[in-house]
Amino acid sequence: MTFEQFVAVQGQSLLRLAFVLTGDRHLAEDLAQAALADAYRHWKKVTAASDPPAYVRRMLVNAHLSWRRRRSSTERPTDLPDTSPDQAAEPGDGLEERDQLRTLLAGLAPRARTVLVLRYYADLDDAAIAESMGVSQSAVRATASRALASLRTTAVVETVQETP
């Protein structure tokens, strides 16, 4: 498989994963581009891997975690909605729930967010997540448990605050 074929087949799923990890369309494009640029530079290693998509997904996750650790990363997302015509939503299509979920996920630490995204969005098991992140399976389970507990607590607090 050539790099161009790989991008044609896997590019959109990598971009969607990057969007769920970052919560920002433009940052997701930058992240996916950086991961694919690294994959291109190391294409022989990628094709030699037993599962090239998983290898590149790990590159994307590592790039995401590395970007989030940098102190120079002081950009903060705003609450302005995306008003592009292709993003127009009909009432009742779940937009409010997805927006609330994105807000809750954005409040998590990068590692916790990454674990939850890989588990529930990318549908990976603990072993695959551990391999993608370079941590142990028990660290994945512990991080997921703490992240879910944090989400539950945050959701309950927000619900109580909204109640008149």
Rank of each mutant, 00 (worst) to 15 (best):
1 M>E: 12
6 F>I: 08
9 V>K: 14
9 V>I: 15
11 G>K: 06
11 G>E: 05
14 L>A: 00
19 F>V: 07
21 L>F: 02
23 G>A: 13
24 D>L: 01
25 R>I: 09
28 A>S: 05
28 A>E: 02
31 L>K: 05
31 L>A: 13
33 Q>R: 06
37 A>I: 14
39 A>N: 02
40 Y>T: 08
40 Y>Q: 15
41 R>W: 04
44 K>Y: 10
46 V>L: 13
47 T>P: 00
48 A>V: 11
49 A>G: 10
50 S>I: 09
51 D>E: 15
53 P>Q: 12
54 A>I: 05
55 Y>R: 03
56 V>N: 04
57 R>F: 00
57 R>Y: 02
57 R>N: 05
58 R>T: 06
62 N>V: 12
63 A>V: 04
64 H>Y: 15
64 H>E: 00
65 L>W: 01
65 L>F: 03
66 S>Q: 15
67 W>M: 11
67 W>N: 08
68 R>C: 06
71 R>L: 07
76 R>Y: 11
77 P>I: 08
78 T>M: 01
78 T>N: 03
80 L>M: 13
83 T>Y: 12
84 S>E: 11
85 P>N: 09
85 P>E: 11
86 D>G: 04
89 A>T: 13
89 A>M: 10
95 L>H: 04
96 E>T: 11
98 R>D: 10
99 D>C: 11
102 R>A: 07
103 T>A: 14
107 G>I: 02
107 G>D: 15
110 P>C: 05
110 P>G: 05
113 R>P: 01
113 R>I: 09
114 T>W: 00
116 L>R: 01
117 V>D: 04
118 L>R: 09
118 L>W: 00
124 L>C: 09
126 D>M: 02
126 D>E: 14
126 D>P: 01
127 A>E: 11
128 A>G: 12
129 I>Y: 01
130 A>H: 09
130 A>N: 07
132 S>N: 06
133 M>L: 15
133 M>Y: 01
134 G>R: 08
139 A>C: 08
141 R>N: 11
145 S>E: 12
145 S>Y: 14
147 A>R: 02
149 A>G: 14
151 L>C: 05
151 L>V: 09
151 L>S: 02
153 T>N: 10
156 V>N: 10
157 V>T: 14
158 E>I: 07
160 V>P: 05
164 P>T: 12
